[in-house]
Design a protein around this nucleic acid. Structure first.
Lengths: 117, 117
DNA sequence: CAGTATCCTTGGGGATACTG
DNA sequence: CAGTATCCCCAAGGATACTG
């Protein structure tokens, strides 16, 4: 399932589900946080994502590519080949949404802490 | 995994993951959209969610309860028993986030449509 | 009515090895 | 370097039947 089909998994279309689908995946949130700051090479991401295997990184990147949130560039000059990933305009438009979600998540965690006392 | 553990699934804490976790689940988006409009009875939700089984509805509601996004009330007057679900204050604070995500999802779908022409 | 219990299938994700 | 292929495991989710 991709972001397009997600919208129609119920009888009534729900764009919210596209957004959720795009962000769902164990490493996507962190990858996007990295890319929000600056473009990243494959290996650069790999070493900064502790516990993420090469396979999983490639898989999560592929889904973001398919959903047109990021693009990749192959730097042919270098040998062996290096790749760069960056946000598309669509991906950049996601940034404020991610910030809103992160802020609310922080608020949520604070509220839970307050309540447990 | 719940919303609390989600934040720490990577080496660095990420509140964004709590928000994603809370919303992840096949029927949660629609359930929350219904509850944003008004309180709902179990059966009321069940009939309005085409394709959702009683088991799945109970499961998704339980997760939202555990994450303190909704509460339930048992209406003892009626026989057999009826239950009502409503948003908690925490759940209500999620509404603007959901609206932001839904708006962006709509924008995303529009952009894809434009691009395919 | 509002769930649980049981069984089964599918997909997400980890470990490891191979390749252009 | 940047992947892909293969194998395996577990959690999400569907079908169906039972219960206070």
């Amino acid at each position: 399932m991709n972001a397009l089909t997600a919208t129609n998994r119920h009888t009534e279309p729900c764009p919210l589900d596209s957004t959720i689908q795009i962000l769902s995946g164990k490493w996507k949130s962190i990858i996007l946080c990295r890319l929000m700051k600056k473009d990243q090479h494959f290996t650069e991401l790999l070493v900064s994502l502790t516990g993420c295997t090469r396979r999983m990184l490639a898989l999560q990147l592929k889904q973001l590519l398919d959903d047109q949130i990021i693009t990749k560039t192959i730097d042919k000059e270098t040998s062996p080949i290096t790749t760069s990933y960056r946000l598309t305009p669509l991906g950049k438009s996601l940034i404020p949404v991610i910030m809103t979600m992160d802020d609310w998540g922080q608020h949520y965690l604070n509220q839970l802490k307050l309540a447990e006392k």
